[in-house]
Amino acid sequence: MLTIETLQNFGANTQEGLGRCMNNQNFYFRLVKMAAGDKGFARLSNALNNRDWNDAFEAAHGLKGILSNLALTPLVEPVSQLTELLRDKKEITFSDLLQQIEEKHKQLLELCG
């Protein structure tokens, strides 16, 4: 169930996210649901697994923008770190970060019902 409380429990900075949505809760929830369903997550996983660093960077960069706008902090942090790692497009170890992202993403999807 998506509420301010559950989002806060998830670790989101709802005050900040809501602020960007002119404090319109319904609109904020709608965007959070859109973010949770964003194709960027799957794209990121696939690209990393295929070692397509360019594509992975673009996906991570895109996600970072969305998630930070909505202040979904638990996801913003690992996605940002991954973005910075991918920026140099060198061979990277990503499994920990990816796992973290996938876990939090799953949680968020559950919240969104």
């Binding site: 960007r20 949505c21 002119m22 319109n24 609109f27 709608r30 965007l31 859109m34 973010a35 964003d38 960027g40 895109g62 923008g65 969305i66 706008n69 909505l70």
Partner: peptide, 12 residues
């Protein structure tokens, strides 16, 4: 290219 960003700006 991100629908969330587009919608957010549009809403503002």
């Amino acid at each position: 290219d991100e629908p969330v960003n587009r919608e957010l700006l549009g809403f503002i």
